[in-house]
Amino acid sequence: MPELLQFLFSGVTVGAVYALVALGFTIIYNASDVVNFAQGEFVMLGGMLTFVCHAAGLPLPLAALIAIAATSAIGVAMNKLAIEPARGAPVVSLIIITIGASIFIRGGAQLLFGKQIHSFPAFSGDTPLRIGGATILPQSLWVIGGAVVVFVGLWLFFTRTLTGRAVLATSNNRLAAQLVGINTGFVMTLSFALSAGIGALAGVLATPITLTSYDVGLAFALKGFAAAMLGGMGNPKGALAGGFLLGLIEALTAGYLSSQYKDAAAFVVILLVLFFMPQGLFGQKSVDRV
């Protein structure tokens, strides 16, 4: 049993990171119908900028705040410079634009920060906690807690605040939202800031465990994308469930079957789910207007 518990712990930890990335995908997708493949670079920037600020002598919480704010600003700039000018472009073009943005950010990070692997200290020490014969790092609890807090925060934001409802209205019908006086341009800006910030937060929380370097973003983007699609693109509940599910599948496959094929198991499950539920687990059936 301790063995299973150990695998579950590591699965939930990884899953929480995927869930945060998937939530970032969901927010931007809802506001603009764009799947932002640069989402993984936000995670990289969060970890990397925190490391740089921390190494420059700033206390860790301040370094993390600066990293998250700076990444949000980069997200907003990306929206203004690359996404808004291409409004209405076909899906393939949008995929290429956001992948172009991700390659650009990765190239910039390589130039500025070099190719080394970096990390910074865990928030609450490195002494593993023992639970039921298995161990878990305190930093894992930070990651899991972070995902839960972000999800609850987003839920409150989208259901209880006027601005959050404006975002939901825009995602339902952009034109109708404009007609009732919602500033959809601001909604887009806000969504990119929020999504980049959440990605950066994931990077800040995960880096003491996973370490970071300029090229970690792509893997996060692919897993986050897969998690969001597994849950059903555009649904925050789906993103959360998809993320944790993906993490658990990976950890259990690595533990019981083969660590080399842990990523394979995740994609096999996604193919099977999409085969039977073409809109993902929580996605709504789309209807074509002819």
Partner: peptide, 10 residues
């Protein structure tokens, strides 16, 4: 190279 490639794509 990567910077330029990304810029060209966008």
């Amino acid at each position: 190279e990567q910077l330029v490639l990304g810029l060209v794509m966008m």
